[in-house]
Design a protein around this nucleic acid. Structure first.
Lengths: 224, 224
DNA sequence: TGTACATCAGTGAACGCGCGTTCACTGATGTAC
DNA sequence: TGTACATCAGTGAACGCGCGTTCACTGATGTAC
């Protein structure tokens, strides 16, 4: 048994502790999750800009005082939501792992792009606020973003490095930078691709084009 | 040669009208610009989340009442800042126009990437809020973003279409989508590339790698 | 099985504070003659 | 050149409101025996 053994056990409840430091029972966990759900809902319906403790409590049909039992402030609640979203990222790794040559690689690329878009569709508002806070220099949000993306970026960079070493892409391309750039593209596009659709671009076309671009960068150009 | 001419001409006054509808004299214009500058400064120093009319007025060393002479609310002020930033975009067109073949194309690509990054460095906070509001569905901000990017996207799409017709890139790549994807990549990366730098990636490496990726998508792969 | 007590979970009500917004007003600048 | 008047620009002070935050309390659940 390694030192990291029981690390996965606490999926739904990272830091299941009240502000007082006490451990939370099942009833308390449910209340906390209700507050988190309310936060997520508000983040979607309105914007980050008009979200408040009072409003969250109202949505969760409880009182502000209860909110303070579980969270220091609104940011902390959103941070937790971002962590919950981040916990889904490992699913992407299954897509990346494997051969990137030829048709198989292209298929993999398509799957990666749509998984990214789906992930954003599901957590749109939370991820938007996460990135905003991170871009504004908040270290907590920077960390949760870094941790969410890191495994994905690392694997992508590996694949890119292989393609580079095999001479299929330019040696001037820095694998980690390229991986970060691809993630940046996918994040940003996922955040606002709906607007493209008014431009007579279907979701499928979007995915196909992106997949080709990703593939080109990851594996070099292939005839097709 | 950089034949850029009098690009500063109309800089300070798109829609120079008070809330009452009256035209603004020079003194009023100066006050309004002071308010805008204060808004931009606050947006940089703090975050979008804690910006208020009162605070802006304080920064500009005037009273809240004055703010309401010129703007309906904080959003309107930021919108104007976003428009001022958008007015700089045409400079990018000079970079895109011209041949994208071979070494020249790669050089063009580098110039494009760094121009993008510089533009974001200069307007970081405003563009971040613009995108946030746009992603949250605010049509005014969606429009200003669309208008800022449109000329650039159109030209890029043209170049990409040429490469596609010449068989240098996959016919499955939709030129407009590819252009949007490149812009998305550059925007997002420009927004947070500072974080990459802690990763031992220099700004030059970043630009070089991105430029290669852009070039690959725009002009197809070339030996290097 | 029932009773007593400890701990957990939730909240009503209150407080102060800072913000958004407006109004009636003052001061500054321009213009006519 | 001076005076009278119109318009432009800016603001002090006030109002109400909703939020953040806390505290002392009640009610719910578990546990010992």
């Amino acid at each position: 048994m390694s030192a990291r053994g029981p690390k996965r056990a606490k999926r739904a409840s990272p830091s299941a502790v009240a502000q007082t430091g006490r451990k939370l029972g099942p009833r308390a966990l449910a209340t906390r999750q209700r507050l988190l759900d309310a936060t997520a809902r508000l983040l979607k319906e309105r914007s980050v800009l008009d979200i408040s403790v009072v409003e969250i409590a109202r949505q969760a049909e409880t009182s502000p005082a209860t909110f303070y039992h579980y969270f220091k402030d609104v940011d902390s609640a959103v941070l937790l939501l971002a962590e919950q979203a981040a916990a889904e990222m490992p699913a992407l790794l299954d897509i990346i792992d494997g051969s990137w040559r030829g048709r198989q690689g292209l298929e993999r690329s398509r799957a990666l792009v749509s998984a990214f878009i789906e992930h954003w569709d599901e957590h749109h508002a939370v991820l938007l606020m996460r990135n905003l806070a991170a871009d504004n220099g908040d270290p907590r949000f920077q960390k949760v973003r870094r941790m969410a993306l890191k495994p994905v970026l690392d694997r992508l960079a590996e694949v890119i490095a292989q393609a580079r070493d095999a001479g299929r892409i330019s040696p001037s391309i820095h694998p980690h930078v390229a991986a970060a750039a691809l993630a940046a593209m996918l994040e940003r596009l996922s955040a606002h691709y709906r607007e493209l659709q008014t431009f007579r671009v279907t979701r499928e076309e979007l995915i196909e084009s992106c997949a080709r671009m990703v593939y080109q960068t990851i594996a070099g150009r292939s005839a097709s």
